[in-house]
């Protein structure tokens, strides 16, 4: 099965490993990630103002490329996924916004949110199936206590993301269990790490990140698992003394292909 793939800026630079593991694991699961040609940065955050058009066009372009190939659009980075899904939703539901965006785009056929936007995790759960993921595990991560960290962007706003219960999600925990490890539940798994405010007010980010780390440690986690490079940065930068790992890396480890990816 082929899907369109939007890697995003960070996966080409600081988070190359997140990308490499994602591609290798997809191969094993029989999914081909076709990178969108000439994709452009999503902008990192979705501007909720309805009159912001230009900043959302890179997403519209990527969404339309996937539509032309009749493929779902998959991303790994939580932020890209959030921007793509929110933009797509605006194209579906905000007529004025969609018509103005289409005026800029000058497409042969107007884009109206037809593309299905999937996070890599949703691809695993809804297309591949966690049972199939479990079948590919050669190196079960037995005995590891892993804390899924959702942060804010994966789940919210729920009316648009519709990925999981935003207050009691299970999608990453289910993946952790499929890989043979133990999932630990802790209250700060869906609270913000401080995000981009790290630049403006590093102390604020530090406080938010520490709360997350401490909450995971109180639940006796050995590892924190994330899908977002900025979450990983903030947690690590602000005193996380347990490893913060991308979910794709953990999968690669369980699939026994981690070394190949690094090579």
């Amino acid at each position: 099965m082929k899907v369109s793939y939007f890697p995003g800026c960070t996966l080409k630079t600081k988070a190359k490993d997140l990308d490499a593991y994602a591609r290798k694991c997809a191969e094993i699961l029989g999914i081909t990630l076709e990178e969108i040609e000439n994709w452009q940065c999503c902008g990192g955050v979705f501007t909720t103002a309805r009159d912001e058009i230009a900043t959302k066009l890179s997403s519209v372009r990527a969404l339309n490329d996937a539509k032309e190939k009749n493929q779902a659009l998959v991303s790994v980075c939580s932020a890209c996924h959030n921007v793509l899904k929110q933009t797509n939703y605006a194209m579906q539901t905000d007529e004025e916004f969609a018509s103005r965006a289409n005026n800029y785009m000058q497409l042969d056929e107007a884009y109206l949110g037809e593309t299905q936007v999937l996070h890599y995790l949703e691809l695993l759960r809804d297309v591949v199936g966690f049972d199939k993921v479990a079948e590919k595990v050669v190196n079960p991560l037995k005995g590891k206590k892993i804390a899924a960290y959702y942060g804010c962007l994966l789940l919210r706003p729920n009316s648009v993301m519709k990925m999981d219960d935003p207050e009691n999600p299970t999608i990453i925990e289910d993946l952790i269990r499929a890989l043979g490890a133990e999932a630990v539940i802790y209250p700060y798994r869906n609270e913000c790490c401080g995000g981009y405010v790290a630049l403006e007010n590093p102390d604020s980010a530090k406080e938010k990140s520490l709360k997350v780390t401490n909450s995971a440690k109180n639940a006796e986690a050995d590892i924190i698992l994330t899908a977002c490079p900025l979450c990983k940065y903030n947690l690590e930068k602000n005193g996380a003394d347990i490893p913060v790992v991308y979910f794709t890396e953990l999968m690669a480890e369980a699939f026994g292909i981690k070394e190949d990816c690094n090579a």
Binding site: G8, C9, T10, T13, K14, A15, C41, G43, G44, V45, T47, T55, C77, A79, G195, Y196, A198, L199, E200, P229, L230, Y233, E236, K237
Partner: peptide, 17 residues
């Protein structure tokens, strides 16, 4: 404001905001 680990994502987000 940079350090060597900071992801691009943080920079573009902050500028956009």
């Amino acid at each position: 404001k940079l350090d060597e680990d900071i992801p691009q994502q943080a920079l573009v987000s902050a500028l956009r905001k």
